[in-house]
């Protein structure tokens, strides 16, 4: 069984190799300076303005919210896949289960929507 994944492994190694090739070739081919790079080359891009970037900045709550919503809905997907595969074998029972599940999902969805979690701010 694991042998059938061998080509995939080889494939991954190959692509990593090609990727690494790009990086290494760049190091070899690219111009190199003896001196340390100046402060200006090390600055983050700010359209020419002095950089005001510090480590550890915070970001909007919305991203967290999206992350949480993703977690929950993605898990729903995870649950739907196994039952989807077996749906036709199991028949009505699976349908009812799926139906209940999806309806609950939709209720949650409606709630989240109505509470405004889906509005991007």
């Amino acid at each position: 069984m694991l042998r059938s994944y061998l080509p995939l492994l080889v494939f991954l190694v190959l692509s990593t190799g090609v990727g690494a090739f790009f990086l290494i070739a760049n190091t070899l081919l690219g111009p190199r300076f003896k001196r340390r790079p100046t402060t200006y080359t090390e600055d983050a891009y700010e359209c020419g303005l002095p950089s005001e970037v510090q480590q550890g900045f915070r970001f909007g709550i919305s991203f967290y919210l999206i992350a949480m919503l993703f977690l929950l809905f993605d898990i729903e997907v995870v649950f739907l896949y196994p039952i989807a595969v077996e749906l036709r074998t199991v028949g009505t029972f699976a349908l009812v289960e799926t139906g209940v599940f999806i309806v609950l999902l939709l209720i949650a969805f409606v709630y989240v929507w109505r509470r405004g979690a889906l509005e991007w701010k």
């Binding site: 709550i61 109505r114 405004g116 979690a117």
Partner: peptide
Amino acid sequence: AGADPVGDAV
């Protein structure tokens, strides 16, 4: 205000 961006402002 709720935990979400809107809170009770709904």
